[in-house]
Nucleic acid binder design. Structure first.
Lengths: 235, 235
DNA sequence: GGCACCGTGCGGCGGCGACCGAAGCGTCGC
DNA sequence: GCGACGCTTCGGTCGCCGCCGCACGGTGCC
Protein backbone atom coordinates (compact mmCIF):
# COMPACT_ATOMS: atom_id res chain seq x y z
CA UNK A 1 0.00 0.00 0.00
CA UNK A 2 2.98 2.28 -0.49
CA UNK A 3 5.11 3.42 -3.38
CA UNK A 4 8.46 1.71 -3.81
CA UNK A 5 11.16 3.12 -1.62
CA UNK A 6 14.40 4.39 -3.10
CA UNK A 7 16.36 3.69 0.04
CA UNK A 8 15.43 0.03 0.12
CA UNK A 9 16.11 -0.35 -3.56
CA UNK A 10 19.52 1.29 -3.15
CA UNK A 11 20.35 -0.90 -0.17
CA UNK A 12 19.52 -4.02 -2.15
CA UNK A 13 21.50 -2.89 -5.18
CA UNK A 14 24.44 -1.96 -2.95
CA UNK A 15 24.74 -5.61 -1.94
CA UNK A 16 25.69 -6.46 -5.52
CA UNK A 17 27.53 -3.23 -6.24
CA UNK A 18 30.89 -4.55 -5.08
CA UNK A 19 32.93 -6.77 -7.41
CA UNK A 20 33.82 -9.22 -4.66
CA UNK A 21 30.25 -9.64 -3.47
CA UNK A 22 29.07 -9.90 -7.07
CA UNK A 23 31.56 -12.69 -7.76
CA UNK A 24 30.39 -14.49 -4.65
CA UNK A 25 26.77 -14.37 -5.76
CA UNK A 26 27.66 -15.49 -9.27
CA UNK A 27 29.55 -18.44 -7.85
CA UNK A 28 26.56 -19.33 -5.69
CA UNK A 29 24.38 -19.43 -8.81
CA UNK A 30 25.39 -23.08 -9.06
CA UNK A 31 22.82 -23.66 -6.33
CA UNK A 32 25.22 -25.33 -3.96
CA UNK A 33 26.31 -24.18 -0.52
CA UNK A 34 29.88 -22.89 -0.30
CA UNK A 35 31.99 -22.39 2.80
CA UNK A 36 33.27 -18.93 3.66
CA UNK A 37 36.85 -20.03 3.00
CA UNK A 38 36.05 -21.38 -0.44
CA UNK A 39 34.47 -18.10 -1.41
CA UNK A 40 37.39 -16.14 0.01
CA UNK A 41 39.85 -18.10 -2.13
CA UNK A 42 37.54 -17.97 -5.14
CA UNK A 43 37.31 -14.19 -5.00
CA UNK A 44 40.91 -13.65 -3.96
CA UNK A 45 40.37 -11.70 -0.73
CA UNK A 46 41.35 -12.33 2.84
CA UNK A 47 39.26 -14.44 5.18
CA UNK A 48 38.20 -11.50 7.30
CA UNK A 49 37.08 -9.53 4.26
CA UNK A 50 35.06 -12.43 2.95
CA UNK A 51 33.46 -12.96 6.34
CA UNK A 52 32.39 -9.34 6.40
CA UNK A 53 30.90 -9.53 2.91
CA UNK A 54 28.99 -12.69 3.71
CA UNK A 55 27.52 -11.22 6.88
CA UNK A 56 26.31 -8.27 4.88
CA UNK A 57 24.76 -10.43 2.18
CA UNK A 58 23.02 -12.58 4.79
CA UNK A 59 21.75 -9.52 6.66
CA UNK A 60 20.42 -8.16 3.36
CA UNK A 61 18.41 -11.32 2.83
CA UNK A 62 20.18 -12.38 -0.34
CA UNK A 63 22.01 -15.31 1.24
CA UNK A 64 21.07 -17.91 3.81
CA UNK A 65 23.68 -19.40 6.11
CA UNK A 66 24.01 -22.59 8.02
CA UNK A 67 26.73 -23.30 10.55
CA UNK A 68 28.14 -26.77 10.63
CA UNK A 69 30.99 -27.52 12.97
CA UNK A 70 33.71 -25.02 12.26
CA UNK A 71 32.37 -24.26 8.80
CA UNK A 72 29.93 -21.59 7.70
CA UNK A 73 27.95 -22.63 4.68
CA UNK A 74 26.14 -20.00 2.64
CA UNK A 75 23.77 -20.34 -0.28
CA UNK A 76 21.40 -18.09 -2.17
CA UNK A 77 18.43 -17.49 0.10
CA UNK A 78 15.71 -18.63 -2.31
CA UNK A 79 14.73 -18.77 -5.96
CA UNK A 80 13.76 -15.11 -5.86
CA UNK A 81 17.26 -14.14 -4.88
CA UNK A 82 18.67 -16.39 -7.59
CA UNK A 83 16.30 -14.90 -10.12
CA UNK A 84 17.48 -11.44 -9.12
CA UNK A 85 21.15 -12.25 -9.62
CA UNK A 86 20.35 -13.91 -12.95
CA UNK A 87 18.39 -10.91 -14.19
CA UNK A 88 21.12 -8.50 -13.21
CA UNK A 89 23.85 -10.66 -14.66
CA UNK A 90 21.99 -11.10 -17.93
CA UNK A 91 21.54 -7.36 -18.24
CA UNK A 92 25.17 -6.72 -17.39
CA UNK A 93 26.50 -9.16 -19.94
CA UNK A 94 26.34 -7.40 -23.33
CA UNK A 95 30.11 -7.12 -23.58
CA UNK A 96 30.96 -4.69 -26.37
CA UNK A 97 33.11 -7.08 -28.39
CA UNK A 98 36.14 -6.34 -26.22
CA UNK A 99 38.70 -9.06 -26.73
CA UNK A 100 39.85 -9.89 -23.26
CA UNK A 101 43.11 -11.62 -22.40
CA UNK A 102 42.52 -15.36 -22.51
CA UNK A 103 44.64 -18.40 -22.12
CA UNK A 104 44.00 -21.99 -23.02
CA UNK A 105 42.57 -22.93 -19.66
CA UNK A 106 39.94 -20.20 -19.61
CA UNK A 107 38.98 -21.00 -23.19
CA UNK A 108 38.42 -24.62 -22.23
CA UNK A 109 36.45 -23.67 -19.15
CA UNK A 110 34.31 -21.21 -21.08
CA UNK A 111 33.66 -23.82 -23.72
CA UNK A 112 32.52 -26.35 -21.18
CA UNK A 113 30.27 -23.76 -19.58
CA UNK A 114 28.80 -22.82 -22.95
CA UNK A 115 27.90 -26.42 -23.75
CA UNK A 116 26.04 -27.43 -20.63
CA UNK A 117 25.76 -26.04 -17.14
CA UNK A 118 23.34 -25.44 -14.33
CA UNK A 119 21.80 -22.03 -13.85
CA UNK A 120 20.95 -22.10 -10.14
CA UNK A 121 18.59 -25.06 -10.35
CA UNK A 122 17.85 -25.67 -14.03
CA UNK A 123 19.77 -26.55 -17.19
CA UNK A 124 21.37 -23.81 -19.28
CA UNK A 125 23.97 -23.37 -21.97
CA UNK A 126 23.64 -24.95 -25.37
CA UNK A 127 21.98 -27.98 -23.82
CA UNK A 128 19.37 -25.89 -22.02
CA UNK A 129 18.54 -23.93 -25.15
CA UNK A 130 18.48 -27.04 -27.33
CA UNK A 131 15.99 -28.82 -25.14
CA UNK A 132 13.84 -25.73 -24.83
CA UNK A 133 13.83 -25.43 -28.61
CA UNK A 134 13.07 -29.13 -29.03
CA UNK A 135 10.21 -28.98 -26.57
CA UNK A 136 8.79 -25.99 -28.41
CA UNK A 137 9.20 -27.71 -31.78
CA UNK A 138 7.39 -30.78 -30.49
CA UNK A 139 4.49 -28.75 -29.14
CA UNK A 140 5.30 -29.39 -25.48
CA UNK A 141 6.10 -25.75 -24.82
CA UNK A 142 4.34 -22.78 -26.39
CA UNK A 143 6.30 -19.58 -26.92
CA UNK A 144 4.00 -17.93 -29.45
CA UNK A 145 1.92 -16.04 -26.97
CA UNK A 146 4.02 -16.14 -23.84
CA UNK A 147 5.92 -18.98 -22.25
CA UNK A 148 3.85 -21.93 -21.06
CA UNK A 149 3.63 -25.71 -21.06
CA UNK A 150 0.96 -27.20 -23.31
CA UNK A 151 -1.28 -30.12 -22.35
CA UNK A 152 1.05 -32.32 -24.36
CA UNK A 153 3.91 -30.91 -22.31
CA UNK A 154 2.24 -31.78 -19.03
CA UNK A 155 1.61 -35.28 -20.35
CA UNK A 156 5.24 -35.57 -21.45
CA UNK A 157 6.51 -34.87 -17.93
CA UNK A 158 4.07 -37.38 -16.44
CA UNK A 159 4.88 -40.00 -19.06
CA UNK A 160 8.59 -39.88 -18.27
CA UNK A 161 8.08 -39.97 -14.54
CA UNK A 162 9.31 -36.44 -13.87
CA UNK A 163 7.22 -35.11 -10.99
CA UNK A 164 5.92 -31.56 -11.32
CA UNK A 165 4.97 -29.85 -8.08
CA UNK A 166 1.31 -28.96 -8.26
CA UNK A 167 1.61 -26.74 -5.25
CA UNK A 168 3.49 -23.60 -4.49
CA UNK A 169 3.43 -20.02 -5.62
CA UNK A 170 6.48 -20.61 -7.76
CA UNK A 171 5.64 -20.39 -11.46
CA UNK A 172 5.66 -23.74 -13.20
CA UNK A 173 7.69 -22.41 -16.08
CA UNK A 174 9.63 -19.23 -16.52
CA UNK A 175 11.87 -17.94 -19.32
CA UNK A 176 15.49 -17.41 -18.30
CA UNK A 177 17.88 -15.52 -20.54
CA UNK A 178 21.04 -17.46 -21.31
CA UNK A 179 24.43 -15.80 -20.85
CA UNK A 180 26.17 -17.47 -23.71
CA UNK A 181 23.41 -18.31 -26.16
CA UNK A 182 21.52 -15.02 -25.83
CA UNK A 183 18.31 -17.01 -26.03
CA UNK A 184 15.73 -17.98 -23.47
CA UNK A 185 15.63 -21.39 -21.90
CA UNK A 186 13.28 -23.25 -19.59
CA UNK A 187 13.36 -22.24 -15.93
CA UNK A 188 10.82 -22.33 -13.12
CA UNK A 189 9.60 -25.39 -11.24
CA UNK A 190 9.45 -27.51 -14.40
CA UNK A 191 12.99 -26.52 -15.36
CA UNK A 192 14.22 -27.47 -11.91
CA UNK A 193 12.41 -30.82 -12.00
CA UNK A 194 13.89 -31.65 -15.39
CA UNK A 195 17.37 -30.74 -14.16
CA UNK A 196 17.02 -32.89 -11.03
CA UNK A 197 15.81 -35.79 -13.15
CA UNK A 198 18.68 -35.42 -15.63
CA UNK A 199 21.26 -35.45 -12.84
CA UNK A 200 19.60 -38.33 -10.99
CA UNK A 201 19.48 -40.36 -14.20
CA UNK A 202 23.11 -39.52 -14.94
CA UNK A 203 22.22 -37.96 -18.28
CA UNK A 204 24.55 -35.20 -17.15
CA UNK A 205 27.33 -35.25 -14.58
CA UNK A 206 29.19 -32.33 -13.01
CA UNK A 207 32.40 -31.47 -14.86
CA UNK A 208 35.07 -29.85 -12.74
CA UNK A 209 34.36 -27.73 -9.74
CA UNK A 210 32.08 -25.09 -11.22
CA UNK A 211 28.66 -25.16 -12.77
CA UNK A 212 29.74 -26.93 -15.94
CA UNK A 213 28.13 -30.26 -16.84
CA UNK A 214 29.13 -33.06 -19.17
CA UNK A 215 26.53 -34.97 -21.16
CA UNK A 216 27.16 -38.71 -20.79
CA UNK A 217 26.82 -41.26 -23.59
CA UNK A 218 23.77 -42.50 -21.75
CA UNK A 219 22.47 -38.93 -21.74
CA UNK A 220 23.03 -38.44 -25.45
CA UNK A 221 20.81 -41.43 -26.16
CA UNK A 222 18.19 -40.17 -23.70
CA UNK A 223 17.99 -36.68 -25.16
CA UNK A 224 17.72 -38.14 -28.65
CA UNK A 225 14.99 -40.58 -27.71
CA UNK A 226 13.00 -38.16 -25.59
CA UNK A 227 13.27 -34.96 -27.60
CA UNK A 228 15.04 -35.82 -30.83
CA UNK A 229 18.13 -33.82 -29.91
CA UNK A 230 21.13 -34.96 -31.94
CA UNK A 231 24.46 -35.15 -30.14
CA UNK A 232 25.96 -32.94 -32.81
CA UNK A 233 23.79 -30.07 -31.58
CA UNK A 234 25.62 -30.21 -28.27
CA UNK A 235 29.13 -29.57 -29.54
CA UNK B 1 31.05 -17.31 -24.87
CA UNK B 2 32.27 -16.32 -21.43
CA UNK B 3 31.13 -16.64 -17.85
CA UNK B 4 29.37 -13.67 -16.33
CA UNK B 5 31.73 -11.03 -15.09
CA UNK B 6 31.55 -9.80 -11.51
CA UNK B 7 32.95 -6.42 -12.40
CA UNK B 8 30.25 -5.69 -14.94
CA UNK B 9 27.54 -6.94 -12.61
CA UNK B 10 28.89 -4.75 -9.82
CA UNK B 11 29.08 -1.72 -12.10
CA UNK B 12 25.49 -2.19 -13.13
CA UNK B 13 24.29 -2.67 -9.56
CA UNK B 14 26.28 0.38 -8.45
CA UNK B 15 24.12 2.52 -10.71
CA UNK B 16 21.14 1.72 -8.53
CA UNK B 17 23.05 1.50 -5.26
CA UNK B 18 22.61 5.18 -4.42
CA UNK B 19 19.30 6.38 -2.93
CA UNK B 20 19.14 9.44 -5.16
CA UNK B 21 19.76 7.50 -8.38
CA UNK B 22 17.32 4.82 -7.23
CA UNK B 23 14.62 7.42 -6.67
CA UNK B 24 15.29 8.84 -10.12
CA UNK B 25 14.86 5.48 -11.78
CA UNK B 26 11.71 4.75 -9.80
CA UNK B 27 10.25 8.07 -10.91
CA UNK B 28 11.12 7.26 -14.51
CA UNK B 29 9.16 4.02 -14.21
CA UNK B 30 6.14 6.03 -15.32
CA UNK B 31 7.58 5.75 -18.82
CA UNK B 32 7.71 9.47 -19.45
CA UNK B 33 10.74 11.65 -20.05
CA UNK B 34 11.68 13.96 -17.19
CA UNK B 35 13.95 16.99 -17.31
CA UNK B 36 17.08 17.09 -15.19
CA UNK B 37 15.62 19.88 -13.06
CA UNK B 38 12.42 18.00 -12.34
CA UNK B 39 14.40 15.02 -11.13
CA UNK B 40 16.66 17.23 -9.04
CA UNK B 41 13.68 18.74 -7.23
CA UNK B 42 11.95 15.37 -6.98
CA UNK B 43 14.96 13.81 -5.28
CA UNK B 44 15.86 16.88 -3.25
CA UNK B 45 19.45 17.40 -4.41
CA UNK B 46 21.22 20.27 -6.12
CA UNK B 47 21.18 20.69 -9.88
CA UNK B 48 24.85 19.88 -10.21
CA UNK B 49 24.48 16.68 -8.23
CA UNK B 50 21.52 15.56 -10.31
CA UNK B 51 23.38 16.31 -13.52
CA UNK B 52 26.23 14.15 -12.36
CA UNK B 53 23.93 11.26 -11.47
CA UNK B 54 22.12 11.43 -14.78
CA UNK B 55 25.34 11.40 -16.77
CA UNK B 56 26.39 8.32 -14.90
CA UNK B 57 23.09 6.54 -15.51
CA UNK B 58 23.21 7.40 -19.20
CA UNK B 59 26.80 6.23 -19.50
CA UNK B 60 25.81 3.00 -17.81
CA UNK B 61 23.14 2.39 -20.44
CA UNK B 62 20.20 2.51 -18.06
CA UNK B 63 18.89 5.85 -19.27
CA UNK B 64 18.59 7.51 -22.67
CA UNK B 65 18.81 11.24 -23.02
CA UNK B 66 17.58 13.76 -25.51
CA UNK B 67 18.51 17.41 -25.51
CA UNK B 68 15.87 19.88 -26.44
CA UNK B 69 16.64 23.57 -26.26
CA UNK B 70 17.87 24.32 -22.80
CA UNK B 71 16.35 21.16 -21.36
CA UNK B 72 17.79 17.71 -20.96
CA UNK B 73 15.18 15.01 -21.10
CA UNK B 74 15.97 11.55 -19.79
CA UNK B 75 13.96 8.36 -19.87
CA UNK B 76 14.62 4.70 -19.19
CA UNK B 77 16.69 3.38 -22.07
CA UNK B 78 14.43 0.50 -23.06
CA UNK B 79 12.05 -2.11 -21.72
CA UNK B 80 14.96 -4.19 -20.51
CA UNK B 81 16.12 -1.38 -18.29
CA UNK B 82 12.57 -0.86 -17.04
CA UNK B 83 12.23 -4.57 -16.37
CA UNK B 84 15.44 -4.48 -14.38
CA UNK B 85 14.29 -1.64 -12.15
CA UNK B 86 10.93 -3.34 -11.66
CA UNK B 87 12.54 -6.62 -10.67
CA UNK B 88 14.87 -4.98 -8.21
CA UNK B 89 12.13 -2.81 -6.74
CA UNK B 90 9.80 -5.76 -6.35
CA UNK B 91 12.47 -7.70 -4.50
CA UNK B 92 13.30 -4.73 -2.31
CA UNK B 93 9.72 -4.10 -1.28
CA UNK B 94 8.95 -6.66 1.44
CA UNK B 95 8.82 -4.00 4.14
CA UNK B 96 8.84 -5.71 7.52
CA UNK B 97 5.61 -4.18 8.77
CA UNK B 98 7.43 -1.03 9.84
CA UNK B 99 4.89 1.71 10.41
CA UNK B 100 6.31 4.69 8.66
CA UNK B 101 5.38 8.29 9.34
CA UNK B 102 2.41 9.17 7.14
CA UNK B 103 0.23 12.16 6.72
CA UNK B 104 -3.08 12.57 4.96
CA UNK B 105 -1.54 13.60 1.68
CA UNK B 106 0.74 10.59 1.38
CA UNK B 107 -2.12 8.29 2.34
CA UNK B 108 -4.25 9.76 -0.45
CA UNK B 109 -1.42 9.50 -2.95
CA UNK B 110 -0.68 5.92 -1.94
CA UNK B 111 -4.34 5.06 -2.26
CA UNK B 112 -4.55 6.51 -5.76
CA UNK B 113 -1.41 4.60 -6.72
CA UNK B 114 -2.81 1.39 -5.33
CA UNK B 115 -6.01 1.68 -7.34
CA UNK B 116 -4.65 2.28 -10.80
CA UNK B 117 -1.31 3.34 -12.20
CA UNK B 118 1.09 2.74 -15.01
CA UNK B 119 4.08 0.48 -14.50
CA UNK B 120 6.49 1.79 -17.12
CA UNK B 121 4.22 1.05 -20.10
CA UNK B 122 1.43 -1.20 -18.86
CA UNK B 123 -1.40 -1.02 -16.31
CA UNK B 124 -0.76 -1.94 -12.70
CA UNK B 125 -2.33 -1.55 -9.28
CA UNK B 126 -5.70 -2.99 -8.42
CA UNK B 127 -6.92 -2.25 -11.95
CA UNK B 128 -4.01 -4.09 -13.53
CA UNK B 129 -4.48 -7.12 -11.31
CA UNK B 130 -8.27 -7.10 -11.76
CA UNK B 131 -8.06 -7.16 -15.52
CA UNK B 132 -5.38 -9.83 -15.47
CA UNK B 133 -7.60 -11.92 -13.23
CA UNK B 134 -10.66 -11.28 -15.41
CA UNK B 135 -8.77 -12.23 -18.56
CA UNK B 136 -7.62 -15.42 -16.89
CA UNK B 137 -11.13 -16.21 -15.64
CA UNK B 138 -12.54 -15.73 -19.15
CA UNK B 139 -9.96 -18.00 -20.72
CA UNK B 140 -8.10 -15.24 -22.55
CA UNK B 141 -4.97 -15.71 -20.52
CA UNK B 142 -3.63 -19.01 -19.23
CA UNK B 143 -1.64 -19.05 -15.99
CA UNK B 144 -1.89 -22.75 -15.22
CA UNK B 145 1.29 -23.77 -16.94
CA UNK B 146 3.10 -20.47 -17.37
CA UNK B 147 1.85 -17.11 -18.52
CA UNK B 148 0.48 -16.93 -22.06
CA UNK B 149 -2.37 -15.64 -24.17
CA UNK B 150 -4.81 -18.27 -25.45
CA UNK B 151 -6.27 -18.34 -28.95
CA UNK B 152 -9.37 -16.75 -27.49
CA UNK B 153 -7.15 -14.04 -26.02
CA UNK B 154 -5.59 -13.28 -29.38
CA UNK B 155 -9.07 -13.07 -30.89
CA UNK B 156 -10.20 -10.78 -28.07
CA UNK B 157 -7.46 -8.26 -28.82
CA UNK B 158 -8.26 -8.35 -32.55
CA UNK B 159 -11.99 -8.09 -31.92
CA UNK B 160 -11.60 -4.91 -29.91
CA UNK B 161 -9.24 -3.30 -32.36
CA UNK B 162 -6.20 -3.41 -30.09
CA UNK B 163 -3.21 -4.00 -32.35
CA UNK B 164 -0.65 -6.53 -31.16
CA UNK B 165 2.80 -6.23 -32.68
CA UNK B 166 3.56 -9.45 -34.51
CA UNK B 167 7.18 -8.59 -34.85
CA UNK B 168 9.94 -7.96 -32.40
CA UNK B 169 11.93 -9.99 -29.94
CA UNK B 170 9.95 -8.55 -27.08
CA UNK B 171 7.76 -11.21 -25.46
CA UNK B 172 4.08 -10.76 -26.21
CA UNK B 173 3.13 -11.25 -22.60
CA UNK B 174 5.15 -11.25 -19.43
CA UNK B 175 4.20 -11.50 -15.77
CA UNK B 176 5.07 -8.42 -13.72
CA UNK B 177 4.93 -8.49 -9.93
CA UNK B 178 2.77 -5.74 -8.47
CA UNK B 179 4.16 -3.58 -5.64
CA UNK B 180 0.92 -3.07 -3.81
CA UNK B 181 -1.13 -6.14 -4.67
CA UNK B 182 1.70 -8.66 -4.38
CA UNK B 183 0.22 -10.44 -7.38
CA UNK B 184 1.28 -10.70 -10.98
CA UNK B 185 -0.30 -8.64 -13.70
CA UNK B 186 -0.09 -8.52 -17.47
CA UNK B 187 3.03 -6.89 -18.93
CA UNK B 188 4.93 -7.34 -22.18
CA UNK B 189 3.89 -6.09 -25.61
CA UNK B 190 0.24 -7.03 -25.05
CA UNK B 191 0.15 -5.22 -21.72
CA UNK B 192 1.62 -2.13 -23.32
CA UNK B 193 -0.87 -2.25 -26.20
CA UNK B 194 -3.78 -2.56 -23.78
CA UNK B 195 -2.49 0.37 -21.74
CA UNK B 196 -2.08 2.55 -24.84
CA UNK B 197 -5.59 1.66 -25.93
CA UNK B 198 -7.08 2.41 -22.52
CA UNK B 199 -5.45 5.84 -22.41
CA UNK B 200 -6.34 6.66 -26.01
CA UNK B 201 -9.96 5.67 -25.37
CA UNK B 202 -9.99 7.71 -22.15
CA UNK B 203 -10.92 4.69 -20.07
CA UNK B 204 -8.22 5.96 -17.74
CA UNK B 205 -6.75 9.44 -17.41
CA UNK B 206 -3.62 10.55 -15.57
CA UNK B 207 -4.35 11.67 -12.02
CA UNK B 208 -1.90 14.17 -10.62
CA UNK B 209 1.70 14.38 -11.65
CA UNK B 210 2.87 10.88 -10.92
CA UNK B 211 2.00 7.48 -12.29
CA UNK B 212 -1.45 7.35 -10.76
CA UNK B 213 -4.47 6.94 -13.03
CA UNK B 214 -8.17 7.56 -12.53
CA UNK B 215 -10.77 5.29 -14.13
CA UNK B 216 -13.40 7.43 -15.86
CA UNK B 217 -17.13 6.69 -15.86
CA UNK B 218 -16.72 5.81 -19.49
CA UNK B 219 -13.92 3.49 -18.49
CA UNK B 220 -15.96 1.77 -15.80
CA UNK B 221 -18.57 0.85 -18.42
CA UNK B 222 -15.90 -0.32 -20.82
CA UNK B 223 -14.16 -2.61 -18.31
CA UNK B 224 -17.51 -4.07 -17.31
CA UNK B 225 -18.63 -4.72 -20.88
CA UNK B 226 -15.29 -6.05 -22.10
CA UNK B 227 -14.17 -8.13 -19.14
CA UNK B 228 -17.01 -8.11 -16.64
CA UNK B 229 -15.05 -6.10 -14.09
CA UNK B 230 -17.39 -4.42 -11.61
CA UNK B 231 -16.58 -0.88 -10.57
CA UNK B 232 -16.70 -1.98 -6.95
CA UNK B 233 -13.62 -4.10 -7.55
CA UNK B 234 -11.66 -0.94 -8.29
CA UNK B 235 -12.23 0.81 -4.98
C1' DG C 1 45.59 -31.73 26.31
C1' DG C 2 47.94 -29.93 22.36
C1' DC C 3 47.68 -28.50 17.78
C1' DA C 4 45.93 -27.21 13.28
C1' DC C 5 42.32 -24.96 11.19
C1' DC C 6 38.15 -22.06 10.17
C1' DG C 7 35.88 -18.13 11.04
C1' DT C 8 35.18 -13.42 13.52
C1' DG C 9 36.10 -8.69 15.82
C1' DC C 10 39.00 -4.62 15.78
C1' DG C 11 42.01 -0.83 14.43
C1' DG C 12 43.81 1.51 10.69
C1' DC C 13 44.60 2.90 6.04
C1' DG C 14 43.37 4.46 1.47
C1' DG C 15 40.30 5.55 -2.13
C1' DC C 16 35.95 6.31 -4.08
C1' DG C 17 31.94 9.03 -4.54
C1' DA C 18 27.98 12.00 -3.03
C1' DC C 19 27.22 16.51 -2.19
C1' DC C 20 27.51 21.56 -2.52
C1' DG C 21 28.67 26.36 -4.22
C1' DA C 22 30.47 29.23 -7.66
C1' DA C 23 31.55 30.21 -12.19
C1' DG C 24 30.63 29.44 -17.05
C1' DC C 25 27.92 28.28 -21.29
C1' DG C 26 24.01 27.87 -24.23
C1' DT C 27 19.00 28.88 -24.93
C1' DC C 28 14.73 31.35 -24.61
C1' DG C 29 11.89 35.55 -23.99
C1' DC C 30 11.17 40.42 -23.82
C1' DG D 1 21.00 42.71 -26.64
C1' DC D 2 19.92 41.93 -22.05
C1' DG D 3 18.42 39.25 -18.27
C1' DA D 4 16.39 34.98 -16.70
C1' DC D 5 16.76 30.26 -16.77
C1' DG D 6 18.47 25.33 -17.26
C1' DC D 7 22.25 22.77 -17.18
C1' DT D 8 27.27 21.64 -16.78
C1' DT D 9 32.06 21.81 -15.13
C1' DC D 10 35.32 22.31 -11.50
C1' DG D 11 37.31 22.34 -6.82
C1' DG D 12 36.89 20.94 -2.33
C1' DT D 13 35.01 18.58 1.72
C1' DC D 14 33.45 14.72 4.16
C1' DG D 15 31.87 10.27 5.18
C1' DC D 16 31.54 5.58 3.87
C1' DC D 17 33.49 1.18 2.82
C1' DG D 18 36.68 -2.38 1.04
C1' DC D 19 40.82 -4.19 2.34
C1' DC D 20 44.40 -6.00 5.35
C1' DG D 21 46.93 -7.86 9.58
C1' DC D 22 46.52 -9.37 13.98
C1' DA D 23 44.61 -11.41 17.95
C1' DC D 24 41.10 -14.31 19.68
C1' DG D 25 37.38 -17.98 20.27
C1' DG D 26 35.46 -22.32 18.77
C1' DT D 27 35.82 -26.81 16.54
C1' DG D 28 37.78 -31.14 15.14
C1' DC D 29 41.71 -34.37 15.08
C1' DC D 30 45.40 -37.02 17.06
Amino acid sequence: MHAPDGNRLAALAALLADPTRARMCLALLDGRAWTAGELARHTGVGASTASDHLSRLVRGGLLAQQRQGRHRYVRLADTRAAHLVETLAAQAEPTPVGERPRNLRTVRADRALALARTCYDHLAGRLGCALTEAMTHRGLLCQDTGFALTDAGLAWFAEHGIPLPRTGRRPLVRACLDFTERRTHLAGAAGAALCRHALASHWCVPAGTGRALRVTDHGERAWRELLGIEASALR
